[in-house]
Computed example of a mutant assay.
Amino acid sequence: MKANRFWSWLFLILGIAYFVLPLIGTVEFSLKMRRGEYSLDAYWAVLADPRFQATFGYSVMMAVATIIAGVVLIVPTAYWIRLKLPHWRPFIEFVTLLPLVIPPIVIVFGYIRLYNTSSWLPLTGTAAGTNLLLMFGYMTLSLPYMYRAVDTGLRAIDVRTLTEAAESLGAGWLTIMWRVILPNVLVAVLSGAFLTFAIVIGEFVLAALLNRPAFGPYLQLIGANRAYEPAALAVIAFAITWACMGLIQLVTRFQKHTMARR
């Protein structure tokens, strides 16, 4: 038992060191912009850059739009599959896994091929159309995470009983979705939303090939032309991702605490 515990702790420490040491090195390098001392000059330079503000704001806007569109699409679909079409679940799960198998570069080239200015629906001909196409691309990339989060939330409740009870009180389909189903899977939806936000903030391929002013291409541009600012941006992006993960844990704990009190 002691030998097993020793090897378990050893591998745990090695795993933590594998992830933490590069992060510590990046943080230290980002603080060395001022020769001979540590400073936050690289962070101030990045945060004061108008391109950072514009690209980060654009990506946040696209993330919010992607989350809203994803919730509108996925929650009713997962609910209907679970309630009326359970035999379709294996097929839907297979479809939602495809974005993990198909590279984003293949997806975006398919979009460009189908929706260029000479096609039947020229979305790439205008900025609004390209933004819409980019949002669809982000929805595709986040589909495995959002769908599974919502599906897990639906498994935790008795969908059929809730639906029958609401219908017996005269509720329509929209009322059932908005006032019965969505509040019960809200924590699962928020978990999928935070994961979607992290994906959109760090995504590069779709935004770069569609030529949109997103945060991912800005990260690549700064990394190719600066020294200390890319390290600061990497730390900021890492902090945003971990903040999303922390919010997921916080929301999950809040749900467990609420259920325990009930």
Rank of each mutant, 00 (worst) to 15 (best):
I16P: 00
L154R: 13
L169N: 05
F197I: 00
N184H: 11
I107H: 12
V95L: 12
I16R: 00
A127F: 14
L121T: 06
V27W: 05
A128D: 09
L154P: 09
G57V: 12
L123G: 05
G129P: 01
L14Q: 10
Q220K: 09
P217T: 00
T258Y: 15
I181L: 12
K32Y: 01
A243D: 10
I248Y: 11
A237N: 06
L73P: 02
L195E: 06
V185I: 12
L98A: 11
E37R: 15
W44E: 13
I92H: 12
L100D: 01
A63C: 13
R35P: 07
I105V: 15
V200G: 07
I201F: 09
S168Q: 04
G202V: 02
Q249R: 14
I201P: 01
R155P: 00
A239Y: 11
L98S: 08
V205W: 05
E37K: 15
L98Q: 06
T117R: 15
F29K: 10
T130D: 13
T175L: 15
W88F: 14
A237E: 08
L85P: 00
T241K: 02
Y115D: 10
T258S: 15
D151I: 10
A171V: 13
K256I: 00
P217A: 02
L219V: 07
A260P: 13
G25N: 04
L133Y: 05
L219E: 01
N4T: 06
W120N: 01
F6K: 11
I81L: 15
F91H: 01
P90G: 02
L209A: 11
R5M: 05
F52Y: 08
I157S: 10
L100K: 11
L190H: 09
E164M: 07
P213W: 02
L21E: 04
L174V: 02
F197D: 00
R253C: 06
L83D: 00
E203R: 13
D41E: 14
